[in-house]
Design a protein around this nucleic acid. Structure first.
Lengths: 161, 161
DNA sequence: GGAGGATATGGGATATCATGGGATAGAATG
DNA sequence: CATTCTATCCCATGATATCCCATATCCTCC
């Protein structure tokens, strides 16, 4: 069962570069084969995209279905190069690599933002602004979500005889 | 369980031609029948393709599924001719053969680039450029990732009789 | 409002990792 | 057989990641 990340938490980054991962996120990741998180520089946002090892394992499984040496294979494989495996210490903290902190503009605190199956890590002020922008955009464009299950098949037409 | 390689590390190559393989890559290769890496000259990039012995053995098994004497067979088989078995020393280093270093343009440092099931070894500046080109290409083509699961199939239309 | 438990924060000691050098054994060459 | 070259093995060091422990803060319950 895939992890589920909700809510937003802001935690301090200490002078050693350590930051606590929120307890509920750690609980959501319990039982995975790697005790920690996987984080990437977001392609779209000045933030980090993060999740559990299960997503990486699932991407590796997808690699196995592609022709090795194809363009598709290389494109998916390159994602692994950008992924960083950050183990939890005994207190549930991670060491935030300098290059990830720099990408997100994180200095002394970090916002952990649950996005359902994954989460993001932001500099808190940058996230507040992003959130305001997202809300504005949702108001303009509306919002949809695919249905939970397919609609039932239409009943067969009764024929006149 | 197949090895998994993530992230990118840049390590020094010393005057004896030794370079440390990153500790996480060595950990990923632990337990394999050969204590070291297999590396061969990439035929697409100015880099080395590398992995563990298990990966090479599994590629050999896939070779068996190809038509012998076909072009595909010959291309893959040639990889085995080019592959070099590089054992770890006591400190987790390999000796980088001059011809492999030359192919990748590696002189005094090497970038180990995790690609999931395998990894590549690059000259660091060449890799930075390659990465920029990959990013550019992904932007042009509007890179997406397939959804994690297929949308439910539409229910079949009941036929009038 | 206070107590207790859970979580986050902070500091120090230790182990690991990457780097560097030298000795030795084995291979190659004359 | 001797010499040279080089791969392998062994050891040391500095930086830093990891581990361990203590304390502060926050939240919940009585």
């Amino acid at each position: 069962m895939a992890a589920l990340f909700l809510s937003k938490f802001v935690n301090k980054v200490d002078r050693k570069g350590r930051v606590s991962v929120p307890a509920t996120f750690r609980a959501a990741l319990a039982g995975q084969s790697f005790n920690g998180i996987i984080a990437f520089r977001s392609f779209k946002d000045a933030a980090l995209d993060a999740g559990g090892i299960d997503r990486i394992e699932e991407m590796a499984a997808r690699l196995d279905t592609l022709q090795q040496f194809s363009k598709e294979y290389d494109a998916l494989a390159s994602i692994f190069a950008d992924a960083q495996q950050l183990p939890f210490d005994g207190e549930g903290r991670i060491m935030l690599p300098e290059e990830l902190a720099a990408h997100a503009g994180i200095t002394d605190s970090a916002a952990f933002v649950g996005l359902g199956r994954t989460f993001q890590i932001w500099e808190p002020a940058a996230h507040a602004q992003h959130q305001a922008e997202m809300r504005e955009s949702a108001k303009r464009q509306g919002m949809t979500l695919p249905p939970r299950m397919p609609a039932p098949a239409p009943a067969p037409q009764a024929e006149a005889r």
